[in-house]
């Protein structure tokens, strides 16, 4: 397997509070890497370091390096980077536009003008996000009228529309009911054929269901990373075992 993302000695801090400490980690191509850990363990900060979204915070400081396909992302244009590294947020953040306008928001900004091309793209992405059948009759309806689960898949379709290579999921099912969650998880597994996925989740069971490998974060440090079965059945570290068996967190 080829390494897609390599993280060397990454530390992140917001003002005085350090949220990620000296992290080393590799994400492989076409895998789903799960990141679990109690809240405030630096999972989301780590994820947002990968598409340089942390930089929007005025007091953010970062040390260490992140390589994607062997290239240091800090030397890249952040806009090009973010096109390659898509993100699905914790809450379904549909823009107050129509369903189809949400999907083609990115491509339009990147200069795709042809109406036909955009329509085809929208359909393809909605299909990939397993949403097409549910919304094909109301493409021009308001995105915010969709259910939470549908909106989350719409956000996924919107991310797919800019043709990323990596998709970051930040607790994508935290606001969803079990049925919608199952649907989103199913979609994620389908996507790994073409994309590399990093999934931050509070839900340990979700990680065990969909992830190839799982990393356990605690207080900003990487405690353990291994095959998912290994993490859940015979982890090396006692803290990992306590967390996955639900003794704390």
């Amino acid at each position: 397997m080829v390494a897609k993302i390599t993280v060397n000695n990454l530390s992140c801090r917001f003002g005085k509070s350090q949220s990620v400490k000296k992290l080393d980690l590799t994400v492989l191509e076409n895998e789903i890497l799960g990141i679990i850990g109690p809240s405030n363990s630096g999972k989301t900060t780590f994820l947002r370091a990968l598409n340089r979204l942390n930089e929007l915070h005025p007091h953010y400081k970062q040390q260490g390096e992140i390589f994607i396909d062997g290239k240091n992302i800090l030397l890249e244009d952040p806009e090009l980077l973010r096109k390659r590294v898509g993100m699905v947020f914790a809450l379904p953040l549909s823009l107050p536009l129509s369903v189809v306008e949400n999907v083609i928001y990115g491509p339009k900004r990147h200069g795709v003008k042809s109406k036909k091309e955009l329509e085809e793209l929208a359909e393809r992405c909605l299909r990939s996000a397993s949403l097409w059948e549910e919304v094909k009759d109301r493409l021009n309806g308001a995105a915010l009228k969709l259910s939470g689960g549908q909106q989350q898949r719409l956000c996924l379709a919107r991310t797919l529309a800019v043709e990323p290579e990596i998709i970051l999921f930040d607790e994508p099912c935290s606001g969803l009911d079990p049925l919608s969650t199952a649907k989103v998880e199913e979609t994620m597994v389908e996507l790994k054929e073409k994309y590399t996925l990093v999934l931050v989740t509070n839900n340990v069971k979700q990680a065990s269901r969909v992830c190839d490998r799982t990393a356990f974060f605690l207080m900003g440090e990487l405690i353990e990373i291994d095959k998912t079965e290994k993490i859940f059945i015979s982890p090396e570290d006692k803290r990992t075992e306590e967390y996955v068996t639900g003794r704390f967190g």
Binding site: N51, L53, F89, L93, L95, G106, R158, V162
Partner: peptide
């Protein structure tokens, strides 16, 4: 969040 979504899609 509107800004974050848009930026995360690589929009300037």
């Amino acid at each position: 969040s509107f800004r974050e979504v848009s930026l995360s899609l690589g929009v300037s």
